[in-house]
Amino acid sequence: MAAQSATDELERTGSAGAVTARPRRGAGASLARFAQQTWRPVAVLAALVVIWWAVTAANLIKPYLVPSPGKTFDVILAQTGYFAHNTWITSYETILGFVIAIAVGVLSAVVMVYSPTVEKSLYPLLLFAQVIPKIAIAPLFVVWLGFGLSPKIVVAVLMAFFPIVISTVTGLKSIDPEMLQLSATMGAGAGKTFWKIRFPASLPHLFAGLKVAATMAVTGAVVGEFVGANEGLGYVILQANGNLDTPMLFAGLLIMSLLGVVLFVVVELLEYFVLPWHASRRTDAATTSL
C-alpha cells in the first residue's frame, strides 16, 4: 500500500511539473515568444532589400528593368492616395471573396459529410470546378456580371473555396469514432454532437485550409482585375506594365504581396486565439508564423 501511494505521488508530481513547465496562456510570455519567432524572417527580408538595393546601386541591372528600392518607395510616397484607393478596392474584393468562400465552403463540407449521396454527386463537380484555370473563365464573369467588383469577388471565391471545402471535409471526417459512440451513450442529438465535439475537433484542419485559401483569395481578386477593371492593384500593375513604368509596377507588386501576408497573419492570429490547445500551437516547433 505504501509503495502504491508513493508511485501515486510520483505520478502526480511528474505531471504537475509538466504543467508548470509549460505556461499555457500568458500575454507577456507569448509576446516574447512571438518576437523570438519573427526576428529571423524579418532579418531575411531586410537582407533581401539590401541585396536589391546593392544590385541596383551597382548598376548590374538596367534601372528600367529593375528599379531601385528607393525609387519604388518614392513612387508609393508620391501617390499615396492613388495606392490607398486601389489597395482598398483589392482588399475589399479579397476579404469579401474570402468570407463568402468560408461560408459556402464550410456549409457544403458539412452537408457532404452528413449526406454521402450529396458528397458523391457534388465532389466530382467540385473537382471539375477546381481544375478549370480561373484565368480562363474570368472573362466569362465579366461578360455576365459587368466591370464592377462582383466578377472579381466571384473569382476570389472560386479560388479560395476549394481548399476550405477539402480541409473541412477532412477535419469533420477525422473524428474519433469512439467519441461519436460516447456521444450516443450520453443521449446527445446530432446538433449537440456537432457543436460540442465534431466541429471543434475539425478546426485545426479548417485553419490549415483557411491559410491556403487566404493567399488564393488575393490571387483571385487580382486575376479578376486583370481581365477587366478600372481600379484595384491588378489594374495598377497592368497599367504600369503597359507604360513600362517599372517603379510603379514594383510598388503595386510589393503592396499586393503585403496584402496577402497580412491576411495570412490575421488567419494565424485567429487560429492562435481560437485553438490555443492545438498541437501545432503548443510546442516550440516554429514551423508557422511568417
Partner: peptide
Amino acid sequence: VFQRAALLEW
C-alpha cells in the same frame, strides 16, 4: 470507458 481516454483536447 474505452481503451483510449477519448478526451476532448480543448
